[in-house]
Design a protein around this nucleic acid. Structure first.
Ligand SMILES: [Mn+2]
Ligand SMILES: [Mn+2]
Ligand SMILES: [Mn+2]
Ligand SMILES: [Mn+2]
Lengths: 217, 217
DNA sequence: TTCATTATTTAGACAAATCTAAAAATTTTA
DNA sequence: TAAAATTTTTAGATTTGTCTAAATAATGAA
């Protein structure tokens, strides 16, 4: 079994693996709010336990065992987020911090029963896929809203930024999961996007558009 | 805020306070599976934080602040146990260990919403009272089954032993919360009790009878 | 390709929570 | 009430995860 801290490292390494291979020490340090020296220490420990492959000065990659562990934590995180939103009426911007704690509860029975109670959801409140108990899940074919052109339309199916301020902003504009949108115009000047949601015209910055994930129709 | 470990000490001290005032070092050590020396260290720390009153060689008592903190942890523990039984179909002997972890999740919103979701239960799956958000609760007027005499009858409303083996044993005999019982005879020889549950005659040892709590009618 | 910059690791220290062994205080027994 | 037994505390060490400062390796610019 891994400690709370080890689990957090594995999860962060898993997420960072989608961006760079291998994962750099500094990248981990930044995400986990710690110093590079501490990361090196922990990486050595995880390597000792055969959860990561570590090459000095190069970085780390997860071993199969480490990856399965990480995916299981992600599974728990996302299932708890669904629980909080669906059953306890949390808003999508309120769930992340609590899920960061709940994801470390150790009980297979608990998580399998929770999954069942929630009717085996396939995505979490932010549109992220929920791995099944074997670690399998389907990556949805997203495209960033910032890549669309005028006339394009689609459905909001995810966000790539989970901060409360960002999510609250989207909520206010009515840009929530499942909403259909149509691009009116992409301003050449600053890349901001004018779009239509439920007969309502809205304008969002390029920065915001980058973090909204669309499934085209 | 207190650490996970500090919370556990406070909770144990709270429970032991019902038995002895002040609470002895060794009693805590035994319950928390640690050594007396470690307990002394932690007690000093809790005293420093004004969560307990500590007199060297005498023992500890909780301060008002410490007591409120402890009651809040008990509240969370019991609410989670209700959740596990009522919503996730756990058996009453399966919930304790998971609740030991869940009770440390830090989120007032979570626990208030959970309370609401469970329709503000007043007792947990073992018949123990659940404090409200202000720390108030009613102690039920229990009597140990071992104190009853032949001819007495009442309802099982609690247990004072939470081990899985004990609870499974009761389950097997049909001696669960809410069941009405009638004492047929208390054997003089060994104090074992012959009783009637749902037209069924059963015999339990004095040791078992001691841990079944009855509300008389 | 050499020097400067950046990234990473090592060395040594620290706080939290624990332990063992020994000392000190309290309680029990005789 | 004095010795014996028990309980509690102290002293010093250990483990986990972190830090700062210094050393080392890798990368990028001239
Ligand atoms: Mn999240
Ligand atoms: Mn999420
Ligand atoms: Mn319990
Ligand atoms: Mn209980």
């Amino acid at each position: 079994m891994q400690s709370y801290t080890e689990e957090n490292y594995l999860k962060i390494i898993y997420h960072l693996s989608e961006i760079s291979h291998p994962v750099q020490t500094n990248a981990i340090a930044e995400r986990i709010h710690t110093k590079a020296a501490s990361v090196t220490d922990m990486i050595k420990k995880l390597s000792e336990k055969e959860l990561v492959n570590y090459v000095k000065y190069q970085g780390v990659t997860l071993t199969e065992k480490g990856k399965l562990t990480a995916i299981n934590i992600v599974r728990k995180h996302r299932l708890w987020e669904v629980f909080l939103v669906d059953k306890l009426n949390f808003k999508w911007d309120e769930v992340h911090d609590v899920a960061e704690e709940l994801e470390h509860i150790q009980s297979n029975l608990l998580i399998e029963r929770l999954d069942e109670f929630l009717h085996f959801p396939s995505v979490d409140p932010h549109g992220d896929p929920i791995p099944d108990k074997h670690g399998n899940f389907v990556e949805l074919a997203f495209v960033k809203l910032s890549k669309l052109n005028s006339g394009d339309n689609g459905t909001i199916t995810g966000v790539s930024e989970h901060s409360s301020s960002f999510l609250k902003h989207l909520e206010k504009l009515g840009l929530t999961l499942g909403k259909r949108i149509e691009i009116i115009e992409v301003l050449e000047f600053d890349g901001s996007v004018e779009l239509l949601v439920e007969q309502q015209k809205t304008n969002i910055s390029r920065e915001v558009a980058k973090h909204i994930l669309i499934t085209k129709n």
